[in-house]
Design a protein around this nucleic acid. Structure first.
Length: 201
DNA sequence: TGCCAGGCCCTCTTTAGGGCCTT
């Protein structure tokens, strides 16, 4: 599970990463963590300072983006990747890796797309609203990379548990989650019924 | 200086528009 804080929304228009947080999940348990600020080599806006709590002063002492991303590439290794609204984080990850001549090879899954299919009745599908809706573990910090990655991890594990309980699935693989995120919202229940049928002995 | 996203998903749809979600 990974999360970026950035200078803005568009890597194609020059925005850069300023913090990355990630948790490694094995057997429905957080077993490792990664977090670092990174100096993008430019000032961040007042809006970003207030939105994230990450100030220009904090970034001036931080290691370079290249240095942090090199360490993170080793941390993520070949593990599957998950982010909340993964399109956003995958664009920044791929752009920052490209800048250090490295490349992502593994697949991404999006916890937001899956939550929309699994919890259509939720009042919203932002990370914050889902944490409240599912009463997930949180330390109350939002818009910081490690805290958001941890909450995404708890959401991911909750969704797996709900799929197991609600559809009598014995095994919920990363691939099944990815497939779920790709079927239409209307077709999701039938897709899950079929998946459960296939797993019956 | 101020401007600039991208994709999903619904609906009053498909020759489109707008809300949501990420910073």
């Amino acid at each position: 599970m990974l999360d970026f804080e950035t200078t803005g929304l568009s890597p194609n228009y020059g925005d850069r990463a300023i913090e990355i947080g990630a948790v490694l999940i094995e057997n429905n348990e957080i077993v490792d963590r990664f977090q670092s600020l990174m100096n993008p080599g430019r000032k961040v806006s007042r809006f970003i300072e207030e939105y994230t709590g990450i100030t220009n002063r904090m970034l001036s002492d931080a290691p370079s983006v290249a240095e942090v991303m090199d360490r993170f590439a080793s941390f993520m290794a070949q593990h599957h990747l998950v982010a909340h609204n993964a399109g956003f984080d995958s664009r920044f990850l791929d752009m920052e890796l490209q800048r250090i001549n490295r490349q992502r090879r593994q697949e991404f899954a999006c916890s937001m797309l899956i939550s929309r299919r699994l919890y259509p009745e939720s009042p919203g599908h932002s990370l914050e609203k889902l944490v409240r809706y599912k009463n997930l573990k949180t330390d109350g910090v939002h818009h910081r990379a490690l805290a958001d990655a941890e909450m995404t991890g708890h959401l991911w594990m909750e969704m797996i548990n709900d799929l197991k309980a609600g559809y009598k699935l014995e095994n919920v693989s990363f691939e099944l989650m990815q497939q779920l995120s790709r079927v239409s919202r209307a077709a999701a229940p039938a897709f899950l019924q079929r998946a459960a049928g296939k797993q019956k002995p």
